[in-house]
C-alpha cells in the first residue's frame, strides 16, 4: 500500500522501519483516538440510543417510546421558534456586519498612516470572553443605564427604552453586541483578500475609464469571491451556533423569545440551566434533529456558493 511519492522521499527507509513508524504514529495519536472514542463517538451513540426513550436521568424509570420523541420535536412550536430566532439573528447581523467590515477594509487598504493601529484596535473586542461581553452590554443597555441616559441627554428619545424587556429591544442589543464582537475579524479577512488583488488590474480598469463603483463591483468584489465564500461560511456557522452569548446576555428574556436554537437546548436540557427531571430522551432527539439541520445548512451553502470559488 505504499505510495510512490513516499517511496521517493523516503528512499533510505526499508519496509521494517516503516512498520515500526506506523506503530509510533499511532502511539503519538493515542490521546486523540481515546478522546474520539470516549468523548465523541460514545456520547453520539448514547444520544442516538436515548432519543428512543423516555429518560429523566434514572435508568429505572426509563421507557422505550419509539418515534414519540422525534414526533414531539417536529410538533414543538417553541423549538421551531428558536430556529426562527436564530435565522432572524443571522439575517439582521450579517447585512450590517459584512458591508461595514468591507468599507473599513477598503479604507484601510488605501495605505493610510496608522492603518495597522486601527486594524488591531478593531479586532480587540474579539479577544474578550462572550460572557463578559454579554455582561457589559446588558449593563450598558439597562433601563437606567449608559445608553438610555445618553440617548435622553442628546434628545434622541423622550423617555427610557426598555431594551431588555421587549423582544425587539433585546434582539437589537444582542445584534449590536454581536456585531461589535466580530466585525474586526471580517475586517482582517477582507484586508487579506484585498491585498491579493493585483495592482495591474486596477490600472487596466483605470485606463479603460472605469469609475470607482464599477471597479469595485467588476474587479475587487469578484477577485475577493473565494475569500468571501469562506468568510460568509464562518459567519453563518458562528451565528447558527451562538449559545453562550445569549445565555449570559438575555438568557432568553423576555419569556424565552430571544433563545437561539443552541442556547435553547442548553437552557432546557443541560444541568445547571435546565429544571430537574426533564425528559433527556426528548433533548437527545432535539439535538440530533438540530445537528442534522446544521449540517444541511453547511452543505447547502457550499453547493450554492460553489460558483464563488471560480469567478475569475
Amino acid at each position: 500500500m505504499m505510495k510512490t511519492s513516499k517511496v521517493k522521499t523516503n528512499k533510505s527507509s526499508a519496509m521494517g522501519i516503516n512498520a515500526h513508524k506506523t506503530t509510533q504514529c499511532y502511539l503519538l495519536l493515542i490521546p486523540e483516538i481515546i478522546g474520539l472514542l470516549l468523548f465523541i463517538l460514545y456520547p453520539m451513540y448514547w444520544a442516538a440510543q436515548k432519543s428512543w426513550f423516555y429518560y429523566t436521568g434514572i435508568e429505572a424509570t426509563q421507557k422505550f417510546v419509539g418515534w414519540q420523541n422525534f414526533i414531539g420535536v417536529f410538533k414543538d412550536t417553541t423549538y421551531w421558534n428558536t430556529w426562527f430566532t436564530t435565522i432572524k439573528f443571522m439575517i439582521y447581523k450579517l447585512p450590517f456586519e459584512l458591508p461595514l467590515a468591507m468599507i473599513i477594509a477598503l479604507i484601510l487598504n488605501k495605505k493610510l498612516k496608522g492603518a495597522g493601529f486601527f486594524r488591531s484596535m478593531y479586532y480587540l473586542p474579539n479577544v474578550i470572553s462572550v460572557a463578559i461581553i454579554g455582561l457589559i452590554f446588558s449593563n450598558m443597555f439597562d433601563y437606567f443605564g449608559f445608553v438610555n441616559a445618553w440617548l435622553m441627554k442628546l434628545g434622541l428619545i423622550e423617555s427610557e427604552i426598555s431594551w431588555l424587556s421587549t423582544t425587539s429591544g433585546a434582539m437589537t442589543v444582542l445584534i449590536i453586541g454581536a456585531i461589535w464582537n466580530t466585525f474586526g475579524v471580517n475586517v482582517m479577512y477582507f484586508i487579506a483578500a484585498l491585498s491579493n488583488v493585483p495592482e495591474e488590474m486596477y490600472e487596466a480598469a483605470k485606463l479603460d475609464g472605469a469609475g470607482k463603483l464599477t471597479t469595485f463591483f467588476k474587479i475587487t468584489l469578484p477577485m475577493m469571491a473565494p475569500v468571501m465564500q469562506t468568510v460568509i461560511l464562518l459567519a453563518l456557522n458562528g451565528s447558527l451556533h451562538t449559545s453562550d452569548y445569549i445565555l449570559v446576555t438575555t438568557n432568553g428574556a423576555p419569556g424565552g423569545t430571544t433563545f437561539t436554537v443552541m442556547s435553547y437546548i442548553v437552557n432546557q436540557f443541560v444541568p445547571g440551566f435546565a429544571q430537574n427531571s426533564v425528559n433527556l430522551g426528548y433533548g437527545c432527539a432535539m439535538s440530533l434533529i438540530t445537528s442534522v439541520i446544521m449540517c444541511l445548512f453547511a452543505i447547502a451553502y457550499m453547493k450554492l456558493s460553489k460558483r464563488m470559488e471560480n469567478v475569475y
Binding site: 456520547p43 448514547w46 449559545s243 442548553v266 433527556l280
Partner: peptide, 12 residues
Amino acid sequence: FISLGSITIYPQ
C-alpha cells in the same frame, strides 16, 4: 461541522 452540542455532557 458534526457535533451534537451540549447534550453530550451527560455521557461525558
